[in-house]
Amino acid sequence: MKGRLLISAAVVSLGMAGMAWSQGNSATAEIEKYREMLGDGNPAELFEMDGEALWATARGPKNASLQKCDLGLGAGVVKGAYAQMPRYFADSDKVEDLESRLMTCMVKLQGFDRAELSKKPFGTANYKSDMEALVAYVVGQSRGMPMAVPTAHPKEKAAFELGKQIFFYRAGPYDFSCATCHAMTDARIRMQDLPDLTSPAGSQRAYTSWPAYRVSQSLFRSFQWRLNDCFRQQRFPEPTYASESTIALTSYLATMANGATYQGPGIKR
């Protein structure tokens, strides 16, 4: 019997191997190969599993789970919710992105303190972020769904407009805005491709691949983390977690991606 089980095994190591680069084009091709290899399996699934368990666990001063949390499609509906966020929520009278909304639920249902929740939202090698696990679970439930961020409510329109203004806002020691790097096609910084977030195609491709597992950090990263690290590199001061500005910018980017199929959670170098 054993003899009949023919085995071919391929062990995929996610470590970046030293690459022999003779010229720019072959380097780009090698990076493309590396990306394909990453597509074989995504450790983000581990974080999704943790988040799914966390969602159903009774926690906080009120000892309740998040199973009654309304992410926009009704209490407890997770499937497809992320593909329609950020959106206006009548109960908070605000436009909220996923992370803001999760905090709203954790405050309302579980009795957590919002300021406390905002203190350490991003994981490190020695600190596991509950928020990022929850994000992994929720976004995973929108994989394969069309992006359909609502834009009808006046506050959704206002968020989109504010987000656009922030996208083009130049400041800091280097005069950078988001647009400095993300408003031209086929550009790259060093070897890193820069999506054109002002075009539907570029914006759709980029937005639908976040949140993502970062191989170089061995961590799952939320969209608020993505914006936070962009602003760091932009030489800006730090955006407050889930602040109106970051939600507005997310509204702008998410709305620009409308119509595309959500592909996340992604996997990045």
Partner: peptide
């Protein structure tokens, strides 16, 4: 091998 590794095997039978 990287942290949080992914393994793919193909098995017949």
């Amino acid at each position: 091998v990287s942290s949080n590794p992914v393994f793919n095997f193909k098995v017949k039978g």
